[in-house]
Simulated scan of single mutants.
Amino acid sequence: MSKPVNLNQVRKARTRVDRRARADENAAKFGRTKAEKELDATRSQKARETLEQHRRDE
């Protein structure tokens, strides 16, 4: 005779696995390293400064 199975635990475990898989997919698709984020921020700041330098005073 086999051991009884708690169906709520099985359902929750399956849900956990599915959510983890979806999270891993999103991390691969949208995740960026800290260095990439800093590089993007630096480039954005440089572009803002360049634009400000070319602004005409009235």
Score class of each variant (00 low, 15 high):
residue 27 A to L: 08
residue 42 T to V: 02
residue 51 L to G: 11
residue 52 E to K: 15
residue 15 T to C: 02
residue 21 A to K: 13
residue 56 R to E: 08
residue 12 K to R: 08
residue 24 D to C: 04
residue 58 E to N: 15
residue 30 F to N: 08
residue 36 E to H: 00
residue 56 R to T: 03
residue 26 N to L: 13
residue 42 T to C: 07
residue 44 S to N: 14
residue 22 R to T: 03
residue 35 A to C: 04
residue 57 D to T: 06
residue 7 L to G: 00
residue 28 A to T: 00
residue 43 R to D: 04
residue 5 V to F: 04
residue 2 S to I: 03
residue 36 E to V: 02
residue 13 A to K: 13
residue 24 D to A: 12
residue 26 N to S: 14
residue 29 K to F: 10
residue 55 R to H: 13
residue 35 A to G: 12
residue 32 R to Q: 02
residue 21 A to E: 07
residue 40 D to F: 09
residue 27 A to E: 05
residue 41 A to P: 08
residue 23 A to C: 00
residue 31 G to W: 07
residue 26 N to C: 11
residue 55 R to S: 08
residue 29 K to W: 09
residue 2 S to K: 10
residue 12 K to H: 02
residue 51 L to R: 11
residue 3 K to I: 06
residue 6 N to S: 01
residue 46 K to S: 07
residue 1 M to G: 12
residue 2 S to T: 04
residue 52 E to S: 15
residue 39 L to Q: 02
residue 25 E to D: 09
residue 54 H to A: 15
residue 49 E to F: 09
residue 18 D to H: 01
residue 48 R to A: 14
residue 35 A to H: 11
residue 55 R to L: 11
residue 55 R to W: 08
residue 11 R to W: 13
residue 22 R to C: 07
residue 55 R to C: 06
residue 9 Q to H: 15
residue 32 R to D: 00
residue 54 H to E: 15
residue 9 Q to A: 13
residue 10 V to S: 04
residue 34 K to A: 04
residue 25 E to A: 14
residue 26 N to G: 08
residue 1 M to P: 14
residue 15 T to V: 02
residue 9 Q to G: 01
residue 12 K to Q: 12
residue 57 D to F: 15
residue 26 N to F: 10
residue 11 R to N: 15
residue 25 E to C: 03
residue 2 S to C: 10
residue 31 G to R: 11
residue 16 R to D: 05
residue 30 F to E: 05
residue 42 T to Y: 10
residue 52 E to D: 13
residue 46 K to Q: 09
residue 15 T to A: 11
residue 48 R to G: 10
residue 31 G to D: 05
residue 43 R to T: 05
residue 9 Q to M: 04
residue 34 K to S: 02
residue 30 F to S: 08
residue 33 T to P: 02
residue 45 Q to I: 05
residue 50 T to D: 12
residue 22 R to S: 06
residue 42 T to K: 09
residue 18 D to M: 07
residue 58 E to G: 15
residue 37 K to S: 10
residue 18 D to G: 00
residue 55 R to N: 01
residue 1 M to F: 11
residue 40 D to L: 10
residue 57 D to W: 11
residue 51 L to H: 06
residue 16 R to C: 05
residue 50 T to C: 06
residue 51 L to V: 00
residue 45 Q to D: 08
residue 16 R to N: 10
residue 15 T to G: 10
residue 55 R to D: 02
residue 14 R to D: 03
residue 28 A to I: 09
residue 41 A to N: 07
residue 37 K to L: 15
residue 23 A to P: 05
residue 50 T to A: 11
residue 28 A to S: 12
residue 51 L to S: 10
residue 51 L to M: 05
